[in-house]
Design a binder for these strands. Structure first.
Lengths: 129, 129, 129, 129
DNA sequence: GTGGTCTAGACCACA
DNA sequence: GTGGTCTAGACCACA
């Protein structure tokens, strides 16, 4: 079980906020493989968003190998699985770091401050879902 | 003067690429406070992009206090100053790290791999202006 | 340029028909890397389907590394790229073959007939886009 | 009598797994023409699935001429006969191959790899009934 | 003009 | 009841 929440008008699309939170929920150990997710309709009601938006997030998560959908039964947390090739992973990682460091530069941070901030967040981090 | 360039199809919107490069140009000393920026039209031609796109970047930079617009005269590099409040800075940093680590989790990366990748990128990185 | 067409009520969702035809169009050499795709609205009109449906197909193709979207400019055929891990590829291939052979069994075909039919289709096949 | 089993979460709908296994059971001689099938309720209990699901599979099998329903008596294995017309068979085969090769193209596989994979699966394959 | 997101609402497929 | 697809239509982001 995971306390999902969504901020409308935050710039990040709602369906991606859901996506991100599910991934992080798993990384943090709040969601375990095999666990059932709230149904599309239930989550939509809870978050006060349109069911289509939740369905979109779920369907993306299924494509990314994070969730599994069993028609008529529900959506479940999947087993860990390596979906992307090494090349694709490094490509996406590069892009993510660049975006991150771009923001850090904008915030006027130095390398040492970036290190510290990352280190702080990495404590308790269970990546490699 | 700064040799701006733009990569179409890089995923990052062009107006934000311009934004970032101006910020970094100032940090690197290639652009000095008080210096005049090329006009929207000139820069658009040089970069082979739509003038609207340059205008958007400039207007964001003015809003962020990085550039200053003097009516009828042109756009100039502003005096260095801290743009964001401390609270705002830490809020944005948090969000940036979380987005970044979310992608890392999706890619099944462990903490050590994240550290290494960040470290690699930080070498030679010119942080905040 | 590729003569896409869509059969409503064929059992296969429209957005996946589009997806499949684009992939095959590339495999067949009718679509080349860098080439611009018809815009979402134009294709929707041509196929007499809702723009959302085309957008869904395009967005899936982008996620699969087949197309690239440049905001405000259009959608383009991407460079070949290995998106999925070896494990994921064999997983998906297994599933695809099983589905295929299941249908063949239903049609009362023997192994030799399957071989012949596949062989016939493989002539002129430029897989490995 | 046939040892049916069902894999939830395999992607293939349960009612079609049942459908396929009955067809294969007849092909393999584990089910003989005239033989009585377990009732919907009994089979549903044995497979731990919803009775609706079994009913759906049976009704499709009856429609395809594989099973015969005798009111008040039960469901029986039909006499072997060719269900699909030649045209229908070749149409369905075409579509099945195209779907299969479409996935192979997406996975960047060449003709040789496709051949090998099909060959591997064909070993020990029991084709049409 | 081009793509992206979201909603409301209908209808289907599956269990 | 659960997920999946599609439409109509609005509005935003980007060039």
């Amino acid at each position: 079980m995971i306390p999902l929440q969504v901020a409308t008008g935050s710039g990040t699309p709602i369906y991606r906020q859901i996506h991100e939170q599910v991934v992080r929920g798993i990384a943090a150990g709040n969601l375990s493989p095999g666990e059932q997710m709230p149904s599309v309709r239930v989550l939509a009601e809870r978050l006060l968003v349109n069911p289509n938006t939740v369905a979109r997030a779920y369907s993306d998560l299924v494509r990314d190998g994070v969730l599994e959908s069993r028609h008529g039964r529900g959506v479940f947390v999947g087993e860990r699985r390596q979906v992307f090739s090494a090349a694709e992973r490094s490509r996406r990682l590069e892009r993510a770091i660049e975006t991150f460091l771009g923001e850090a530069a904008l915030l006027n941070l130095g390398a040492e401050q970036v290190r510290e901030a990352v280190e702080r967040k990495l404590k308790g981090w269970r990546g490699g879902r």
